Simulated scan of single mutants.
Amino acid sequence: MQQYLLSIYQPDGNPPPPEILEPIMRDVEAVKAELREAGAWVFSGGLHPPSTATVLRLKDDEVLTTDGPYAEGKEHLGGFAVIQAPDLDAALAWGRKLARAVTLPIEVRPLDYVSPG
């Protein structure tokens, strides 16, 4: 079965207040439970803010270190889930459920290669 990365794009800035965020997180947990029940859930995680990122880039024969995210923008990768699905249509269906729950854009992308352990 193919694995897919569901990337959650989050706007920069402070998170919404608890009265908005708590119902969203309940909905996200419900989708996660549904993924587990269906045998589609592999793993997921949230990320610290973009200010904690470090980018390593090869230039000539040296690896340069830069603080902060690689791309400048008004959104950043806030979290992700890796799922397994029989095909892209099934993965997109899960992505739609997650987008409705989290109320943020979701990118669905098949994994090209999964390292065995």
Results as ranks from 00 to 15, higher is better:
18 P>N: 02
85 A>W: 01
48 H>V: 07
81 A>G: 13
35 L>C: 07
108 V>R: 02
87 D>C: 05
39 G>L: 04
46 G>E: 06
47 L>G: 05
104 L>S: 07
114 V>W: 07
103 T>H: 14
1 M>R: 11
50 P>K: 06
18 P>K: 03
77 L>C: 02
58 L>P: 00
44 S>K: 00
77 L>T: 03
100 R>Y: 13
92 L>Q: 14
104 L>Y: 10
24 I>C: 10
68 G>Y: 08
93 A>C: 01
72 E>C: 02
94 W>A: 06
19 E>M: 06
41 W>D: 08
55 V>P: 04
62 E>C: 12
60 D>E: 15
112 D>P: 07
9 Y>N: 14
115 S>T: 15
49 P>L: 02
55 V>A: 13
45 G>I: 06
32 K>Q: 15
92 L>M: 15
82 V>D: 00
35 L>G: 08
18 P>M: 01
41 W>H: 12
7 S>P: 05
37 E>H: 08
40 A>E: 06
79 G>F: 06
110 P>A: 08
80 F>M: 09
107 E>S: 02
110 P>K: 03
36 R>S: 11
65 T>F: 08
53 A>G: 07
104 L>M: 15
68 G>W: 08
95 G>N: 02
39 G>C: 02
30 A>G: 08
116 P>G: 13
37 E>S: 14
67 D>N: 12
53 A>M: 10
58 L>S: 12
53 A>H: 11
112 D>G: 14
32 K>H: 15
40 A>F: 08
4 Y>D: 03
56 L>D: 00
61 D>M: 09
45 G>A: 00
15 P>R: 06
68 G>F: 04
38 A>P: 03
110 P>H: 06
3 Q>R: 10
99 A>I: 10
18 P>G: 02
42 V>K: 03
78 G>V: 05
46 G>K: 05
30 A>F: 01
96 R>T: 14
64 L>N: 04
18 P>E: 03
64 L>V: 12
67 D>C: 01
106 I>S: 00
67 D>L: 10
105 P>H: 06
93 A>Q: 11
1 M>L: 12
98 L>H: 05
29 E>N: 11
110 P>M: 08
62 E>H: 15
42 V>H: 04
58 L>Y: 03
104 L>D: 09
56 L>N: 09
81 A>L: 11
41 W>Q: 07
55 V>E: 10
75 E>V: 05
24 I>Q: 04
72 E>A: 03
21 L>S: 07
32 K>S: 13
33 A>L: 12
36 R>G: 08
115 S>D: 15
77 L>N: 08
48 H>D: 12
31 V>I: 13
96 R>C: 12
31 V>D: 09
105 P>F: 07
111 L>F: 11
40 A>N: 02
12 D>L: 15
16 P>K: 02
46 G>M: 03
70 Y>M: 10
89 D>Y: 04
85 A>E: 07
70 Y>G: 05
